[in-house]
Write a protein that binds this DNA or RNA. Structure first.
Lengths: 107, 107
DNA sequence: TGGTTACTGAAGTAACGCCTTCAGTATCCC
DNA sequence: GGGATACTGAAGGCGTTACTTCAGTAACCA
């Protein structure tokens, strides 16, 4: 464990196209580091660096067996995002409720 | 209109801490450019640049009246995000369903 | 009208982030 | 054991991007 999973972390992680591609691949099926690197056209090293970010933001879980590291999608990060969105959506809607009341009173 | 609102765009927009701060302030109440810049401790110019990104990703809408530009939170961007998350969550869950079936057959 | 306020646009700088190379280490297979 | 495979870690290059300064323009106000 490297630290708490925050919306900030998840947004930053998914802000990068390559990392989104990795997450998309992994939501279909678990893959090794090499299996990820090949199609993406980048080095193993680059993939590992992305995986670090993705693990720290709760979007991916990895497990090394023998010499191959298997990577899977994880839901924690997405749940944190959903929560963040819900909170902000509700703040926004509360504003509209108040606006409605004001308009009603204005009559 | 500058282009289509994609999840890629929204993730990139919210990947930046300052832009998240702007969105958070605006979901509470509409604000002018100066009212945003002050508390953030950055110049008007910087704020305007962020607003451009936020508008293009459907997270903020702005309207200039006289010499003051008023900025408001918009839901479009968040909806696109929610859709992206839902899709990926369902891909992930489908994987688990299939895994269950395979385990059943294995008996 | 003249001064202040609010923003806009161009251009430069400095930091950050993605990716690479290279030099390991550990595991698998013959 | 020896060679191939799969990854790991440090260090550097380089392109992007967030922010700044400066020089405007437009609106408001006295």
């Amino acid at each position: 464990m490297k630290g708490k999973i925050t919306a900030a972390r998840v947004f930053h992680a998914l802000g990068d196209p390559t990392r989104r591609a990795i997450v998309e691949k992994l939501s279909k099926r678990p893959l090794s580091v090499s299996a990820l690197a090949g199609p993406l056209g980048i080095t193993l090293t680059a993939v590992v660096q992305h995986l670090q970010v993705l693990e720290e933001s709760g979007l991916v879980r990895t497990e090394k067996i023998g010499r191959v590291r298997t990577c899977r999608a994880e839901m924690t990060g997405l749940s944190v995002l959903e929560r963040w969105i819900a909170e902000h959506r509700s703040m926004w809607e509360r504003r509209f409720d108040r606006l409605g009341e004001l308009l009603d009173e204005a009559d």
